[in-house]
């Protein structure tokens, strides 16, 4: 919507076009266009036989802000948050300056595409990964901000979730600048637009809902009531109901807290794959907790059994070897 056509006119780069940076003098050969964000176009490009994604924009400010964020992320070790930054530079084209940065090229499916292909039952596991990433992001003092399926990629073959487009990332305590209404708690009347961990956690709950309701709906009266009703109406979402409601109402203070509740729900599901959805009147969270404890013990016992079997078979194998040696 805010994307102006001037950028399209200025930078409709065809495969094979070459871009050289004004400052670092690296040359990139465009391979293809990957997509268009809120403020810029992303291309797949090659430089020195290495592939990279290039984000080009006529809005130098947003490019520099994103560069700052990616730089801050690169200081976080082993982070799966944003793509890693390679360099930032300017491209002078017919006297006008287009700013760009080069980043790691992440290959994979968009989140919703992946869910569409593999089924929404994957949502739980992927959100678990996302929450793990958010734990470390929040620890570094940042909030992702514009968290939505379009900004998530599931990489293959490991099926890990990665965030792209870090334009909305904001220091905790400041105000959220970029957001998408469906995933914004302010839009639903369920909180402020100040950057705090619970802002991201609300968006995670909405991604969950979006996975089961591929067509996004708009607000109609009381936001909370409407969302709770939507959750109730999808049978598959009922096991997550208490968990989602907590995230929607801002009751989770940290991503860890939300993550551990999700772990319990998923374990409970695996334990009883055929189990029917629990009756919503009772508090499912406390029940799952009990289940987990019991399950933990069962697992340990089973683990011990496997260990014994393994030991016995190794001893047998060695004995057979010994006997065989004796025969020779």
């Amino acid at each position: 919507m805010m994307m102006n056509n001037t950028l399209r006119d200025q930078c409709n780069l065809l495969p094979g076009s070459k871009i050289t940076g004004k400052w670092n003098k690296n040359t990139y050969t465009i391979i293809k266009e990957l997509g268009q964000g809120a403020n810029g176009i992303v291309y797949l490009a090659e430089s020195n036989n290495k592939r990279a994604a290039l984000k080009i924009s006529d809005n130098g400010v947003s490019i520099i802000s994103e560069m700052n964020i990616l730089k801050a992320f690169s200081k976080v070790q082993g982070s799966a948050l944003g793509p890693s930054l390679l360099e930032a530079d300017d491209w002078v084209k017919n006297k006008s300056i287009l700013s760009f940065y080069a980043m790691e090229y992440i290959i994979g499916d968009g989140f919703l595409e992946f869910i569409h292909r593999k089924g929404p039952s994957w949502t739980g596991v992927l959100m678990l990964q996302l929450l793990t990433s958010l734990v470390s992001l929040h620890k570094q003092g940042w909030v992702f901000g514009d968290l939505k399926p379009e900004n998530l990629i599931v990489t293959m073959p490991s099926c890990t979730i990665r965030c792209i487009d870090v334009g909305g990332t904001t220091l905790i305590g400041r105000s959220i600048k970029e957001f998408t209404e469906f995933f914004d708690r302010g839009y639903w009347g369920l909180g402020s637009r100040s950057a705090e961990p619970s802002y991201d956690l609300f968006a995670v709950a909405m991604i969950f809902i979006n996975a089961y309701y591929p067509v996004r709906f708009s607000k109609n009266g009381d936001g909370y009531k409407q969302l709770v009703e939507m959750i109730k109406q999808k049978k598959e979402l009922v096991p997550y109901r208490a968990f989602l409601q907590k995230a929607l109402s801002g009751a989770y203070n940290s991503a860890e807290e939300m993550r551990s509740d999700l772990v319990e729900i998923l374990q409970n599901q695996r334990k009883q794959p055929a189990a029917q959805t629990p009756s919503p009147q009772k508090a499912p969270v406390t029940r799952t907790r009990k289940h987990t404890k019991k399950r933990g013990r069962v697992q340990r016992r089973r683990g011990g059994l496997i260990e014994t079997m393994l030991l016995v078979s190794i001893v047998c194998f060695l004995y057979v070897l010994y006997i065989y040696g004796q025969f020779l």
Partner: peptide
């Protein structure tokens, strides 16, 4: 102007702009 600074320096100036906007 800001555009005449190399990207890294511009990034530092941008942090000030963000801070003031906030």
């Amino acid at each position: 102007t800001m555009e005449d600074l190399p990207p890294d320096k511009r990034g530092e100036v941008m942090e000030v702009v963000d801070e003031l906007g906030e």
